[in-house]
Each structure stands twice: as structure tokens, then as C-alpha cells.
Design a protein around this nucleic acid. Sequence first.
DNA 1: CCTTGCCAACTGGTTGGACCAGCTGCTAGG
DNA 2: CCTAGCAGCTGGTCCAACCAGTTGGCAAGG
Lengths: 244, 244
Amino acid sequence: MALRAIEKRSLPDEVFEQLTTEIVSGRYAPGASIPSERDLSETLGVNRHVVREAVKRLEQIGLVKGGQGGRTKVLDFRATAGLDLLAVVAEHAEPVEDLLPLLASAMEMRAGIGAEVARLCGERSASEAGGELLRIAERLAATDDGEERLALDQRFWQRALDGAGNLAYQLAFNSLIRAVHARRDFSLPWLEQELARGDYRRPIAAAIAAGDAEAATQATRRALAPPAPTDIWPTSSTTTEASR
Amino acid sequence: MALRAIEKRSLPDEVFEQLTTEIVSGRYAPGASIPSERDLSETLGVNRHVVREAVKRLEQIGLVKGGQGGRTKVLDFRATAGLDLLAVVAEHAEPVEDLLPLLASAMEMRAGIGAEVARLCGERSASEAGGELLRIAERLAATDDGEERLALDQRFWQRALDGAGNLAYQLAFNSLIRAVHARRDFSLPWLEQELARGDYRRPIAAAIAAGDAEAATQATRRALAPPAPTDIWPTSSTTTEASR
DNA sequence: CCTTGCCAACTGGTTGGACCAGCTGCTAGG
DNA sequence: CCTAGCAGCTGGTCCAACCAGTTGGCAAGG
């Protein structure tokens, strides 16, 4: 049963990826213009409508800005794009070295909003969420499979987010998850080392169940505190090889 | 000089807005299908490409999921969409009552990541950022104009984010800002009451400048702690009237 | 009767070609 | 030298097909 769903890539997907890589890697610098739709269409050998759709998607996530008449210009995504961009950048970061600080920042944010979500969940729905969180934490402590851990971890936080009742945190979490999933090869080792530091979800679940919001925050902060990235990801061997 | 840039709304923008409103307001429930591109194109009196672009944008932000052959289905955005959706929902929330918890959640998140950003900035670039933050805080304390306060507040956090050196927080901040800007009529009063509670940025800046990360976190938490939404936004009068 | 297989109708995906509308930069006229 | 104006570029929209999957119903076979 090692079968997975086939990823269907449409032509606009393809174009979108190429353009994204060019921009994220800096080959199209902020302020510069990307080629016209007609040029791209000819260069890439696809219809202009296809190019158009890809460019429109770039525009939506805040990588470029177009406008009738003028050329389409590359933006400084750090200033204009939203959190959804994180997954896109993670997927297309070109020197893989650029990827590490990026994923580290995502993990750091995960720790930050995790602590806050634990607090809110403890304050707002300790009794409702507590039991289920404890149950998930138990199963998390029992399994050894990396993929299953990742899934359970996600469910754990999903439940905590429900309890926290904050849409913004919920959506932010979704964005982060997407970024992390885009690079499982890097995120799985991270999770492994988190678990290697001991049973780390049960104290959180217990604090929430007990309605001790402050303790839940502290437990989360302790559990998700990031180590140095180099402790997890070997710097060169697999890395530079993957970047070719 | 009360002139503002004219907002150009393209046809896809228009279609996108209509569909978004239908979905966010729940008239197209999760799991249901939206009309086919051809139907929409005929109903709305625009070309199918226009409809197509709008639907593709919905797909990108995680409101619907399409696929060749099958119908395009509405997703449960709480589970699938990223933080970028917040601004979209804020703009299209239909019973305006739905808007209040949403903006409250955005403000709550702002407080949470604000505290974290202040900590990181204090840890990582106290000396570089401290001075400028103090200067902005001074100007913030000196002005009375709401719009200028909003702009300065944004610059304050922008500088702190630079100092924190965390791309994820940076992008999340951009997303939140967009959501808040989408509803200035609600966010300006919020900021007003924050300021009414006293000079609130200087303690943060001072703590950062002093390199006391923990104090910076605490000062931020205190300054941005949310009051009950009803203390700021009158529940009915202007609200229900705006919803018509 | 239920199952199985197939096909028609419908969906999104892609193409090509045309024209409209706004911006930009060069150029001819002052 | 400056400026008005036009030509040629850009993105925006439309029409009319055809390709390629999915779906659901219908009919043959068990």
C-alpha cells in the first residue's frame, strides 16, 4: 500500500513554478520586470492564456504586480506577501542553504503561536479539549513511525486550535503546516529530535486539562524550543547534492 | 489633498468578490459545488476566461478545489486556507456581526506575535534596532492623527520585525496588516483605545534598546492585551445599518 | 435481482486569434 | 531645449473551438 495519489501538474502549474523559482532565487530582482505575457508564451511554448493564469497567481500571492498597459514588476516579497508565501518559498528556495533559516523561522513561529494557542485553549475550553488532547498525546508517545507522528502532532494542535477558538491562529497554523509539508525531508528530522528530548506533548495536554493556562504556555515553550538548525540538518552532504 | 488613488476593479476582481462573498457567508456550503464555469460565465455575462481566473484565485487561497472533469467544490476554509484568507474573509464577511470575532482574533494574534517579535528583536539586535524604535515611539506619542498613528505603528513593528530576523513572523504580520486595513472603520477605534490606555510603545522600545528581551515581551503583552470587543465597537447602531 | 461494463454528456484544460484599453518612450514640431 | 502627440508596446477581454478527464445512467450479463 505504498501507493500515493498522482500529482497532476497542469501547464499553468509548470509555468508558475518556473517563474516562482526565478523570482524567489533572486534572478528576477525586486523592481525589475518579468518578460511580457506574449514573450513568455512564445519562450515556454504554451498559449498566452496559460502564462496569464500563472502570472495572475504570482500576483495574488504578492510576488509581482501587474496592471494594464505597464509591465509586470517583481515585488519585494518580504514587504508585500502574506504568510501563504512561506510554503511557496520553501518549495522553490534555490540554493538549499537559503532553506534552513526559512524553515527555522517557521519552526520558531510554530513554537510561538503554539505556546499562545496552548494558553488560550487552557483558558477557554480546558474541560472539552483536555481529555482528547491527553488521548492523542498518549498515542503520540506510543508510536515510532515518523509519518504517523507527524499526523498525530498535527491532530494534537488541530484540537488545541479548536479549543483556542481563534481563526487567525488557525489559518496561520494551516500556512505553517503547508510550508513544513513542502519539505518533509527537513521537517521530519526536526520532529524526531523534538521527540528525542522526551515525551513532550503530555505535559502540555495535562496542563490544558487542568485548566492551568500559564503552565500550558510554559510547557509548550519548553517542548518546542528550537535547537541550533545544524544539530538537526547536516550542513553539506545531502544538502548541496540535492541542489545540484 | 483628500484625493486618493482610484481603485481599478477588473472583471475577474468583480467575479472573485461575488463568489467569495457567497462562500464566506455560507451560501455555498463546504462540500457543495459551485456552478460550472460555463454557467457562471453565462449568468454573470462575462467571458469564461474571466470566470476561470476568478475561480482559480479562489482555488489558490483555499476556498474551493477544482480538477479536470469533476465539478469545483467548496472547501471548509477553516481547515484548508492559509492566513492570507483572513483579509479576504474580513472584507467579505456578510452579517457584520461575524466580523467582530474575526477581527478580535486578528488582534489577539497581533498581540501574541508582537510579544514574541519584541523578545526576538531584543535578543538579536537590541543595539541596532533600539534607537530607531525609541525614535518612532516618540513620534507616535506626539501625534494625534489616527491615520498617522496607524502608519507609525506599522513602521514600529516593521522595524522590530527586521530586528527579529524571522521571515515567517514578517509574512504573518503582512497578512494581519492586510486584514486590519481591509476594515479601517473597525481597526482605527481599536488602536485609539490602545493609545488611550497611555503611552504604550516607549516601554517596549526601551526594553528592546536595553537588550532586556523578557521585559520587552511583557511590555508588549501588557500594551496589546485585548479588551472586550464591545468596549470598542458599538454592537448595533452603525453595525447593523452597514449590513443593510 | 444485482453487478458489471460502457458510453454520452458534462466538467475543467488548452489553444488560437482577434480586438480593446492604458502606459511609455521616441520624435517631430514649437 | 522643451513639449505635445503618436506609435508601439503592455495587459484585459472576448469568441469559438477542441482536448481530456469524471460522472451517472443505461443496458447487457451474471
